[in-house]
Design a protein around this nucleic acid. Structure first.
Lengths: 213, 213
DNA sequence: AAGCGGCCTGGACAGACTGTCCGGCCCGGA
DNA sequence: TCCGGGCCGGACAGTCTGTCCAGGCCGCTT
């Protein structure tokens, strides 16, 4: 890369697309251009949070992408601090040589859509609610999905997750109530490729952090 | 339809409402005015099937309506022969004396709504659906609700349920996956006002019945 | 290189929970 | 009255849970 401002080029190259997307999706979509190498924000349109160019992206390393891998990720879900739920899509943008040059993320606030869908669904399906199982039948599948989701989202394969990563995943799993299910702990440990001991350590840490009282 | 048609009055009275509703809900709503006494169609707007005035209504007995009962029913679901699913609302229309004079039915074809909802839902919630708890947070509450539901439905208080009753409840609970939750067995036993031993006996019996293979 | 701290791990363990079994009790029918 | 079905509490072995520990690995510092 160039001298001190390697970003310029890429922003110039990609900003029309970004602006188009931002314009198309209206006020509820945030478009972010990331520098995959430095893991920082290059530019941002219609920001939903206080991020600005130069801020860390928190994307995780996407640089060890093999060319065969898919360049478009998602849509997957993120949750903002204020509870708004986003549908996000990420795309690896490559230069003329085929090298990854930036990462584009589009974050669509789905709450209005959710509300609309709920309205429609309620309109259409009046009272015949389903017996609705207490929990998903195939919870191991579900565990794998949560773990897999994080892997996907962080770009790191399971066996290379950091301690903090695993802590995050454990937090999600705990929030999802997974650990109230019989036999879930060993399964989770396996999925997380860690030992049962460590899993419990992480879990304890998570719970201690959450309520230090 | 004058002389031989006693319906006239009522149709004249109610048709503005019916037309308004039909207009409001667009091409997907059928509005039918029934004669509750003769159980025949008085008038129909925007019919979805080949019914015409004078045809039997097939409403079933709505005549034994006590005045205290609610006059508006639904929305409930109907299914057309061709598979279209309808959301329906019925209303008893009363004359000046408070006597039932006709029944209004509005049948809304929900397939377009369902499709729209699906589109929106798909748009909004692509692949990683809600962190959506794996199971209800307050599952004991849920257990009580299932048990209570059965009690309500059978009219017998918990402590007077028959063996077969309890077996049914256990079946429902098992189908809901309750027994995959840690610590659920004692709670269920308590809710069912039976002993843990018996609970396990019932559970075993249920599972044996289900798959005698 | 050696020392150190942080973290992971397998193994060990006590304690909780799970399923099963049994003897005793109650109750309704023959 | 006797009998059989069903329930109960208690007991038990087996499993699962959390916790703890000693040892090992790794990166960092001295």
């Amino acid at each position: 890369m160039r001298a001190s401002e390697p970003a310029d080029d890429r922003v110039r190259t990609w900003s029309p697309v970004c602006r188009a997307v931002a314009a198309l999706l209206g006020p509820y979509a945030e478009v972010v251009l990331h520098d995959a190498a430095t893991d920082r924000v290059l530019a941002i349109w219609n920001p939903m949070t206080a991020r600005a160019p130069g801020d860390p992206s928190l994307l995780g390393e996407l640089d060890d992408l093999d060319p065969a891998a898919e360049d478009v990720f998602g849509p997957y879900e993120k949750v903002l601090a204020d509870g708004r739920r986003l549908s996000s899509v990420s795309a690896v943008l490559r230069d003329a040589e085929g090298e990854p040059s930036a990462v584009l993320c589009v974050n669509l606030d789905r709450t209005p859509l959710d509300q609309a869908a709920a309205v429609l669904a309620g309109f259409a399906a009046p009272r015949t609610r389903r017996p609705e199982p207490l929990f998903e039948r195939d919870w191991p599948e579900r565990v794998h999905r949560i773990v897999g989701g994080f892997v996907h989202e962080s770009g790191r394969p399971v066996e290379r997750l950091t301690r903090e990563d695993r802590l995050t995943v454990v937090a999600r799993l705990d929030d999802a109530g997974v650990f109230a299910l019989r036999r879930s702990a060993p399964e989770v440990a396996r999925a997380l490729q860690t030992s049962r001991s460590t899993l419990y350590a992480l879990l304890a840490e998570h719970r201690a952090r959450r309520s230090p009282r």
